[in-house]
Computed example of a mutant assay.
Amino acid sequence: MRVTNYVHRLPVSTPTLYPATTTNVYIVESEGTAWIIDAGYENPEAAKTILTYITQLAVKKVAGILLTHHHPDHSPGAKALADFYQCPIACHPLEVQPIEEKIAPFKVDFTLQEGDSVQAGDINLTVLHTPGHTHGHLNFWLEEEKVLFSGDNIVAEGTTWIGPPDGDLTAYLASLERLQELQPSLIAPGHGDIIRNPSEKIEFFIQRRLERERQILELLSQNPFRLEQLVDTIYRDQVHPSVIWVAERTILGHLEKLQKEKKVRQKDDRYVLI
C-alpha cells in the first residue's frame, strides 16, 4: 500500500514474535528506480506478493535490497528478490556473516556505514547506524518526506526486546535519543502500521526501558534476586508463555547495563546492588 509519494509498505507473513504476525517490506521508489528495505522470511507467497506489487508500480529498475539487520524475520526473503531482480544485497559490516548464513548461497554485495546514502531517482536514503537491537542494526532516513525506516528499533505494537547476544541496552537508548533528534514526520517500523506520532512513540520506548530499569533497582534494593526470579516478578501474567525467553533476555540486558554502570553486581547466582 502507498504510504507517501515515495514510500510503499507491504506487510508479509513471517514467523516473528508475538504480538506481530507480519514483517514490513518497504519499497522506496522515484522516477522508475526502487530500493527494497527488508525482505521478510523465506516465504514463496510473500515473495510473490512483493514481486506482484512492484510490477504494478511499473518500476524500471530495482537498485537493491537494504537489510536493517540479520534476524530471520527480516533477511532470508532477500534470496528470492535478489534472484528475480538480479540486484545487490546490502547491510552493515557487522551483519554480513549472520545474513550470509541465512541467504546462502547468495552473498552480501556491499556494506553500508553511517552517513552513506543510496539514490532512487531524485531522492536519497541516508544510512543511520543505530545499534542496540543488534550490533549492526541500520535505519534509513528519507529527508524529502522526513520518513524514518526504523527496522526493529521502534515497532508499532509492544516494545522491542534488547538483550544478549545481539542486544546492547546502552547503545539502544543512545540510538533512540538520536532518532528523536531527527524529528521524523512518520516512522515506518519493521512491524505494524505506520507510526504517525513519532516523537511520542520514541519517548514511550525510552521511558519503558527506564521504567524497567527502575523496577529492577527497586527489587534489588529489597533483596538479592536470581535472574529467573526477576523475570517472574516483573513479567508474571504480562507476557505470552511463548515469548518468556524474550523477557528473560530483556532483563539480562538491563542487568548487563547496570553492571557496566557499577550499580549492580553478581554474587553467586544472584544479583545485588552495589
Rank of each mutant, 00 (worst) to 15 (best):
R2C: 00
T4I: 07
T4L: 05
T4M: 02
Y6N: 08
Y6K: 05
V12D: 00
S13L: 07
P19I: 00
A20P: 07
V25A: 01
Y26Q: 06
V28K: 07
V28T: 08
S30I: 04
T33S: 09
W35N: 04
A39Y: 01
E42T: 04
N43H: 05
N43M: 00
P44E: 04
A47P: 12
T52A: 14
T55I: 02
G64V: 06
I65A: 03
L67E: 11
T68G: 07
H70G: 09
H71G: 06
H71K: 14
P72W: 13
H74K: 11
A78F: 02
K79F: 11
A82Q: 08
H92M: 14
E95I: 06
V96I: 15
I99P: 03
E100A: 14
I103Y: 05
A104N: 11
K107A: 07
F110P: 02
G115A: 04
G121Q: 04
I123A: 11
L125Y: 03
T126V: 07
V127F: 02
P131H: 00
T134V: 09
W141V: 01
L148P: 13
L148H: 10
N153K: 05
I154F: 00
W161C: 13
L169A: 08
Q180I: 12
E181S: 15
P189N: 02
P189L: 01
H191M: 12
G192K: 10
P198W: 01
F205S: 08
R208K: 09
L210N: 09
L210A: 01
S221C: 08
Q222P: 02
Y235E: 00
R236K: 14
Q238I: 07
Q238G: 00
H240M: 08
I244T: 04
I244R: 12
E248K: 14
L252R: 10
G253W: 08
H254I: 06
K260A: 14
D268I: 09
L273Q: 15
